[in-house]
Design a protein around this nucleic acid. Sequence first.
DNA 1: GATTAGCACTCTCGCATTGAGAGTGCTAAC
DNA 2: GTTAGCACTCTCAATGCGAGAGTGCTAATC
Lengths: 347, 347
Amino acid sequence: MLTERQSRILGFIIGEYVEHATPVASQYIEQNYPVGASAATIRNEMAELEEQGYLNHPHTSSGRVPTGKGYRLYVETLMREEEVPWDAQQTILHQFHQIEQGQESWAQLAAAVLAQSVENAAVVTTPRMDVCRIKHLELVSLHDMTFLLVLVLDEGRLEQQVLSSGGLYSQEELSATATQLNRRYEGKTSKELAGDETDLSELELLVMEAVHSVMRSVDEGGAEEAHLEGLRHVLSQPEFSNSEAVLGLLELLDGQNLSRAIPLRALAREGVTVIIGADSPQLTNASEAMRACSVIVGSYGAPGDASGALAVVGPMRMRYSRTISTVRYLADVMSELLSEQYEGPTG
Amino acid sequence: MLTERQSRILGFIIGEYVEHATPVASQYIEQNYPVGASAATIRNEMAELEEQGYLNHPHTSSGRVPTGKGYRLYVETLMREEEVPWDAQQTILHQFHQIEQGQESWAQLAAAVLAQSVENAAVVTTPRMDVCRIKHLELVSLHDMTFLLVLVLDEGRLEQQVLSSGGLYSQEELSATATQLNRRYEGKTSKELAGDETDLSELELLVMEAVHSVMRSVDEGGAEEAHLEGLRHVLSQPEFSNSEAVLGLLELLDGQNLSRAIPLRALAREGVTVIIGADSPQLTNASEAMRACSVIVGSYGAPGDASGALAVVGPMRMRYSRTISTVRYLADVMSELLSEQYEGPTG
DNA sequence: GATTAGCACTCTCGCATTGAGAGTGCTAAC
DNA sequence: GTTAGCACTCTCAATGCGAGAGTGCTAATC
């Protein structure tokens, strides 16, 4: 257990280290923080904190650096969560209301806003239902024997697929078919579809097979898109000053690997979760490159209803207070926007 | 002007340097390439090549390194374009036919394939008409006073926008409205729309205003999406071994800046264009970080019809022959796929 | 006159050394 | 329990050195 003074010193050291990224010396603390004790005493306390695993020594004669355990204690008990400053709130709201068309770029935008706001990398997934339902489908003739299937799912998500038919159909025929299928299948889930595909024309069968396969892949999360922004913030931190580390992280987060490296959906739960270092069992495959990083995960939307996840990825040495509150704030903003859009402004 | 032997030596040096990224010595050339002259003679020729600006000296006593001018000569006259190896072709085709649904992820996939194939970064833009036309529109009720406008444009591109209406409309009313609007506006361009918006109901007006604004922004290229993949290949090259260079390039290409840094549409023309170093006037704003890079730009689709651009970004020290032929090959594959999908398999 | 062998010269790179500075750990006094 | 004082450790930057690589030049050769 830590004494009051030890806790305060740990807090000071973390604050100092987060800001300057350089090991913190006893003398420096004495001169810049109101500890009420001499450097020697602070040194003793530091030794004790190190004994208990909250601090570390790069080498014999250098200042102290917080460990993962140190950060965790800080986040869980020492830190007090600060409000998101009013002007930061305004900036976020402003940027958000710039674009409010469909969610094509919504998640992307959210990621960019978040990244800029906390000056770290941010990931935002598109909102998704646990099990999606057909809201509407439409068939649009493209040319000769090909046409486009447009599928609107219940959270307003769009899916499309180009189909080649065996025969030639006019737009009128396609529209009529679409109307019929809509009447029959609206509101159905992928599972409910499975048992209800008798008595269909050749065209209808072709369409419904495609619908089925699209919905399955959406259900499986294959269609979940995670947008990453602001990697540069993380990579310009001093912990990535050697380019090996840069490549490690880049390899991990760039491109397709993202969702494998950070299983956002699995991590997102009510409230905000903080993962410090690669300590969490969920991040085992992340390993190496993530060892010096922390992830702050939040979720938006309503559970059961459409929901998505948002996260900040940054070095372990991170302004947790600010970051956590920003994630929480943004999650609220996004939840609200989502419910406004899809449940009516009055709802 | 260069003699035959000088040209060959330049070619050897470039080949060597491209592969090993280390300055090339006269003795090495003598022992590994059929020049038919001694190291001393090769040294003399190298001095001459340097005089003329094709080679460079990192310092007095080190081998030679090609300059931008050297690479340009190589690409324009010395190099012979190699065929894309059969198995590489197969790999590309295979990967491409894995997914062939709409182009949501198409450009992304193409970028990934290209990046992997040439082991460099790749950018692919979504196909786009010079001036887009309405193919079809659809209205889907979401909740109470909001509904979704789904707009299918002529190259099969989908756009969506959430609208809030003044009043309450049923799905039937919305569908009827959509049918009417389709009849009236199908095939129209943004401009043609402008003069033809009289005599509309409140709902219709709301919809057509949204349609108009979406189409304008698509026309302006604001909606053009450029997908970047494989940055890691470039960044792991030795020219980016110091992390400053990494950050420079990352800042430039990551996120929103991409299309500003490389104005793909402006660069793409018939055939394949090679930009070596930041020598091209079009890349002036790219500057610094791109100075050590080359860009190979191609275009796919048909001019006048839907078309897009694809590009490879890599260090100046690049396997030009292979890269150029791969870009050309992929452009052909994509053009074909595009025409198959949207002009009918028989066309 | 072009080519080549030979050699001095230059510059890099890796390695060990050195000295200053920072910060701790320990001991003894308060 | 706290603190002053001091020796000790380790880093970091600068310096010097030797080996090695590769050139540039000169003089001999074909």
